[in-house]
Computed example of a mutant assay.
Amino acid sequence: MATRRRRVSVFLTGFPGFLGSALVDRLLDRTDRVDCLVQSAHRDEAERRAAEIAGTDWADRIRLHEGDLTDARVGLADDRYERLADDADEVFHLAAVYDLGVERELARRVNVEGTERVLDFTERADARLQYVSTCYVSGRYGGVFDEAMLREGQSFTNHYEETKYLAEVAVRDRMADGLAATVYRPAITVGDSRTGETQKYDGPYYLIRFLLRQPRLAVFPRLRGATTTELNVVPRDYVVDAIDALSRTDRAVGTTYNLCDPHPPTVADVRSILAAATDRRVLSVPTSQSLLTRVLSVERVRRWTGVDPAVVPYFTHPTRYVCPNARRDLAGTGVSPPAFGAYARTLVEYVRDHPDVPSDAMV
């Protein structure tokens, strides 16, 4: 696979977020500098992470530009916007509101309108776009969802899914008009498979913390279809490794990649894997999705379990994800997703050692 030339500058959104922080570290070995769009509220955290990545002289390699995706010209002054566009050879757009309970207006402004503004910047820069979407643009599509699919008449579980879908539609439309871009769709992304490190406890972490709060014999709800419904989970290091490897090649231009587990566990498998990783015996209690959602919506129950009712629909998610493009173009790179069972205990140990990691989205 051909490797792209060394760049003057990469423009990146989503720093100091979960994926953005790890990706900046990779980008520094192939570009003169990385220009990061950072919200003012996260400036201090961005400086701390930049120093961790690049040392005390980080400002020579990582430039922080305070702005906002919801503002015109992503919140940058005209002269800075033009200067950055003149320098940028590549744009990585990772910033989004990842919150299953996000209000529609906020999700629309950040995920949809923000993406449109990044697309405008990319076209002004005549740059290549690396866009991070999500497998869940599928909504609740019933069946196999491959990398060519997008507009399938699907319904959506929440405003996060819907607005990420609309954002990818906007990206695909610009690609049809000639924009050089690559789309990456991670599945449910958890911490590093080697260290467990993460910035947010959501998704499978709700199950981990629920089990850890219980005695050795733990109660666990069982929904219909648990033995057939897949829960597609990948660790952060796989997602970052894949984006890093694919974004270096010309072959990836115009391509969409489902960054998912080609052999995912079922919900029942995840329950068994996490029971073993938390050293719990599980007593499965049959229930319905509607009843479980109602019970978890009671504030007292939600505080005790630590489980957000917004995750319940994913235990009956009707979609299966396949990734032929990713498997083809990552062949020979050594990059592939490890099985969930191979690193589940690492995730659990990180939760034990770091109980105060938040579940709130970075907004």
Rank of each mutant, 00 (worst) to 15 (best):
279 D>G: 15
205 Y>P: 03
44 D>W: 09
207 L>Y: 14
215 P>T: 12
307 V>D: 08
178 G>V: 11
30 R>M: 11
133 S>H: 05
211 L>S: 06
259 L>T: 00
224 R>N: 14
71 D>Y: 09
152 E>S: 15
5 R>G: 10
345 R>Y: 06
129 L>I: 05
55 G>F: 01
289 Q>A: 15
33 R>F: 11
40 S>E: 14
33 R>Y: 10
123 E>D: 13
261 D>S: 14
37 L>A: 01
77 A>E: 12
236 R>H: 04
50 A>M: 06
191 G>R: 00
17 G>A: 01
358 P>N: 12
340 F>H: 05
120 D>M: 05
173 D>P: 00
212 L>R: 05
219 V>L: 15
67 G>F: 05
195 T>N: 00
114 G>T: 11
301 V>H: 09
99 D>T: 07
56 T>I: 11
113 E>M: 15
15 F>D: 00
151 R>D: 15
150 L>A: 07
242 A>K: 04
23 L>D: 00
36 C>Y: 03
58 W>S: 11
5 R>W: 13
55 G>T: 10
338 P>W: 01
104 R>S: 10
348 V>Y: 05
283 L>Y: 14
183 V>C: 00
217 L>K: 12
349 E>P: 02
40 S>T: 14
332 G>A: 05
18 F>G: 00
66 E>R: 09
18 F>V: 00
91 V>L: 03
172 R>W: 01
29 D>P: 12
237 D>K: 03
217 L>V: 14
326 A>C: 07
349 E>S: 09
338 P>N: 05
73 R>L: 07
217 L>Y: 07
6 R>K: 13
107 A>K: 07
97 V>I: 14
83 R>G: 12
132 V>N: 06
227 T>R: 15
18 F>E: 01
305 T>C: 11
273 I>T: 10
58 W>T: 02
327 R>K: 13
143 G>A: 11
42 H>S: 13
20 G>W: 00
49 R>A: 08
190 V>H: 00
202 D>H: 13
350 Y>E: 00
330 L>F: 01
149 M>Y: 02
51 A>H: 12
185 R>G: 01
125 A>F: 06
194 R>M: 02
23 L>I: 02
262 P>M: 06
46 A>V: 01
234 V>A: 01
41 A>R: 15
244 D>W: 09
90 E>H: 10
91 V>S: 06
102 V>K: 11
186 P>L: 03
215 P>I: 09
124 R>K: 15
16 P>R: 01
242 A>V: 03
348 V>C: 08
186 P>R: 04
136 Y>D: 07
68 D>Q: 12
251 R>N: 11
235 P>C: 02
134 T>K: 06
127 A>P: 05
194 R>K: 12
187 A>M: 03
219 V>A: 14
248 R>C: 13
344 A>T: 05
206 Y>Q: 05
116 E>R: 14
30 R>A: 08
278 T>A: 11
336 S>P: 01
47 E>S: 10
240 V>E: 01
212 L>C: 00
332 G>K: 05
295 V>H: 03
67 G>R: 06
